[in-house]
Structure formats: structure tokens, C-alpha cells
Design a protein around this nucleic acid. Structure first.
Ligand SMILES: [Zn+2]
Ligand SMILES: [Zn+2]
Ligand SMILES: [Zn+2]
Ligand SMILES: [Zn+2]
Lengths: 158, 158
DNA sequence: TTATGTATGTAATATCATAACACGTCAAGA
DNA sequence: TCTTGACGTGTTATGATATTACATACATAA
């Protein structure tokens, strides 16, 4: 598993690794990782944090891409559909998926002090959710699991 | 447990019951369930579905309360803080809590076809989430668990 | 080549949410 | 009693987020 955001790690490496896998995945599935889309993903990876659509747009526009909201929203939507990024609704933001390709039901841990977002392995969480839903006859297709709390670093400070 | 939204039930009864408990809870805690706040809760209960802040506002304004966004947002924020309502981020909406007072980690089941929202008992889900977070040294304070899928009725239709 | 689907760009608008300030009420304390 | 401060409500104005609709460019395939 990719190192969680909370820990120090060789970011250039984990980022490049994810990007390579993203290329492979989209090629394999027939989806087109066009320049804007690829650049949007790179921007998320470089930031290594959740970014708002307008923030991504600003970066894209500065590099010569369109400067209207749909440009960013479409690229980000594509990435989310392909499982290359996730949408964090609590923050109205997006973040690159740190382990694309691996089947995973992501759960996000959002530090309320430093806004760092980590993606936790949540297969057991998802299983419990599916079970609770099944009790009511509900079939879960997608789930957003977002936890707000304190990351290790910010716990130490407090 | 209160009947889930997916099932037919005596809504007037479940709604009145919840409102009575809300009164008791706020009185006990010293919080003030003022007319606007109480009416906002009633509106959510009557609708028995998730409502946007502006939708609630419209109802409040029609009854003589203020007609500016903060009026609705403040009332709804109060209800959420008191555990009398929940915010559904996926829908940018709010819904009355169907079992206030009971300690509960809510999980919401949102039907993508009819937009009905049910509140599932999610203690096991929350437990799994806490465990996954603990692995990374993260302490969960609050969690939003929102599942998108198909409710029993809409499954039958499809 | 021409047709077709997909991707991108732009303008305009819709929707959601908050900041800042004014006013009224009520209760504690001088 | 008068003052003060906390709280709730209302309003104006603005900010932040997201989508619709339409035009243009580009790829691919008949
Ligand atoms: Zn992921
Ligand atoms: Zn932190
Ligand atoms: Zn609840
Ligand atoms: Zn349904």
C-alpha cells in the first residue's frame, strides 16, 4: 500500500508511481487520458492534498488551458469516474487516488486542524455498510465515507 | 427503532414522536428550541426527506420568518449541532434525525432514483471506521457515511 | 471525404453558503 | 434601577461552488 499522507515519504516517487499506473489503467480500459486530464491529475498529485475545482482550474489556466469552470470540473469528473481521483464532499474538493486500480472502498480521514486528507483502507467499513444497508433492502453502489478528526501530528501538538 | 423511510409507516406518529423527544432533549440540555428552529425541524419532519437550505427557507419565509439565507442556515446548523437533524453533503441538504437522543453514528442510504434518504443503524460501520483510522494513528471525531444506491421500491421497478 | 462521436472552450447562469452589521430581548450583576 | 453582555433574529451584500447551453476542434471510421 502507498504510504499514507500522514507519514513522511518520498513523494516524488509515490506520485510518479501513481501517474504511471494511471496511464496503464486508462490505456487498458480505452479511456483517454488527454493532456488536460493528465495535467489535472498531476496537479492533484503534486499538491498531495485535497484541492478545490477552482484551485485546479487556476493552475490549468496558467498553463494555457481553458479558464472556465467546466474545464476543471470535466477533467476532475473524468478522473473520479476512472477511479484516479476522489471527491471529498466535506471539503468541496478533490484528491488524487493514492492506489488506483486496486479495488478499494475509500474512507477519508480529514484532519480538522491541518486539512490533510488520508485515504484509509476501508474494506471492512464497506462490508459493514453493505450489511447495514442489506437489512433495509437497500443496495449500495457507491459510498462516501469521510471522517473528521485529528491526525497524529496535530494530536501531538495539542 | 423508528421505521426506516423506505417502509410505509404512520408518518404523523413517527414525526410527532420525534418532535416531542426534540423538545425534551433541548429543554434538558438548556438549548433553546425557539419558534424558527422548531418550525424548521417540523418542516424537515413533514417533508420526511432531505431538503436544501433554500427550500426550508422558502417555507419559513412563507410563514412570516425572515427570508434571507442565514435564517435557514442558522436554524439548520442549530438542529445539526443538537443532533436533531443531519446534513447530507452529497445532496447539499438536511434531514431530520429519526431517532434523536439515541447515541448513534448515522449512515445514510440515498436512493439515486427517488432521492429518498434512510438513516441506517451504523454502529458496526463506525466501529470498523474507527479501527481503520486507528491503524494510521488518526482519531475520528465525526464521520459522514453516505451510500448511494437503489432503495427496495426502485429496485422492484427496474 | 463525409459523417459521427468525443473533447475542449466560452459565456452565462444557477445554486449553495457565509460575512458583517443592526436591532431586539432577556437576564445577571452593579 | 440601570447597565452590560449574551444570544437570537433580521437584512444587505458578497463569496464560493457547480451546471447549462452552445460553439468549436479533433479524432476515428464508414
Ligand atoms: Zn483511492
Ligand atoms: Zn493534522
Ligand atoms: Zn440520526
Ligand atoms: Zn428509490
Amino acid at each position: 500500500m502507498t504510504a499514507p499522507a500522514f507519514q513522511l515519504h518520498d513523494h516524488a516517487h509515490c506520485s510518479g508511481d501513481v501517474l504511471a499506473r494511471a496511464e496503464a489503467l486508462t490505456t487498458a480500459s480505452g479511456a483517454r487520458l488527454t493532456p488536460v486530464r493528465r495535467r489535472a491529475l498531476e496537479i492533484l498529485l503534486e499538491a498531495h492534498r485535497a484541492m478545490g475545482a477552482y484551485e485546479v482550474l487556476q493552475r490549468l489556466a496558467a498553463e494555457g488551458y481553458g479558464n472556465q469552470p467546466p474545464v476543471a470540473y470535466r477533467a476532475l469528473e473524468f478522473l473520479v469516474e476512472q477511479g484516479l481521483a476522489h471527491r471529498i464532499r466535506r471539503l468541496n474538493a478533490f484528491t488524487a487516488c493514492m492506489h488506483p486500480g486496486e479495488a478499494h472502498a475509500p474512507a477519508f480521514l480529514i484532519c480538522r486542524a491541518c486539512d490533510t486528507v488520508a485515504e484509509a483502507a476501508a474494506a471492512p467499513v464497506r462490508a459493514a455498510l453493505d450489511a447495514a444497508a442489506a437489512d433495509l433492502g437497500f443496495v449500495v453502489e457507491r459510498a462516501n465515507i469521510e471522517a473528521l478528526g485529528l491526525c497524529p501530528a496535530c494530536q501531538a501538538q495539542a
